[in-house]
């Protein structure tokens, strides 16, 4: 048993060594750290050449974004996990068709968006859960700001109400709103992902915000 363990560890080391030594791009020799700092385009080229580590770095770079965008659309962790997996699998299979001069992030999010919309169309996704439930389900989720407790509580109430209001929006509106205001995507990228024009995205975003404002004022969450 000990011999087998030793052999396994030795083989892992041998494999890692081999992987590191084989990371040659043109005349350039890349270490794992170099690879992690590489731009998307380089990682895509390496993935296409069969380097799994390069795709793993791409995956780790974008999985949180993809998961959260999908989650806001389906409001269900189990479905979000399955759809994230499906998105990356489709992305991997479609890497060869990716245009080298385009940005990877909008392309990936478009795949995520289409995959999720298809899922919703097929199954009419599960009902929305509240922020409380979301936090209970995923203990890793924490509010990003660390202010005083009172402010935290106030912020939490505001966030919970906003999350509830967002969950009541149609899925397409929710997606556009989340991409812009939670993930800070440029209008052009959102237009690309949703097949809309930039001006219609801007106009739609204002209308969504106004709709949410009215909902929150009615609930007396926002002070008038």
């Amino acid at each position: 048993m000990a011999l087998l363990n030793f052999g396994t560890q030795w083989a892992i080391r041998l494999e890692k060594d081999f992987n590191l030594k084989s990371l040659l791009v043109g005349d350039e020799r890349l270490t794992l750290r170099d690879l992690e700092a590489s731009e998307d385009q380089k990682l895509i080229s390496l993935s296409l050449a069969g380097n799994q580590k390069a795709f793993e770095i791409l995956l780790r770079r974008y999985q949180k974004l993809v998961y959260n965008v999908i989650f806001q659309m389906v409001q269900n962790h189990e479905a979000a996990a399955d759809l994230t997996q499906e998105t990356f699998l489709k992305t991997y299979k479609g890497l060869a068709t990716f245009r080298g001069n385009a940005a990877f992030k909008p392309w990936l999010l478009k795949i995520a968006s289409n995959t999720t919309l298809n899922y919703i169309r097929d199954s009419r996704g599960k009902a929305a859960s509240s922020l409380e439930e979301m936090l209970e389900e995923n203990p890793h989720a924490e509010p990003s700001s660390k202010e005083r407790l009172e402010e935290q509580v106030e912020l939490h109430i505001c966030q919970a109400n906003l999350a509830e209001a967002i969950a009541s929006l149609p899925v397409r509106q929710r997606q556009i709103f989340v991409l812009r205001y939670q993930h800070d995507l440029p209008y052009a990228d959102i237009a690309n992902i949703t097949d809309e024009t930039e001006s219609s995205i801007k106009s739609l975003l204002f209308r969504i915000r106004e709709k949410l404002r009215k909902m929150l004022v009615e609930k007396e969450t926002l002070h008038s």
Partner: peptide, 21 residues
């Protein structure tokens, strides 16, 4: 109120992806 919505939206919690996934 419009500004508050934008600010609150940016502060909404984001979920980490588990290593298992």
């Amino acid at each position: 109120q419009h500004e508050t919505i934008i600010e609150t939206m940016a502060s909404l919690p984001q979920f980490d992806v588990s290593e298992k996934l």
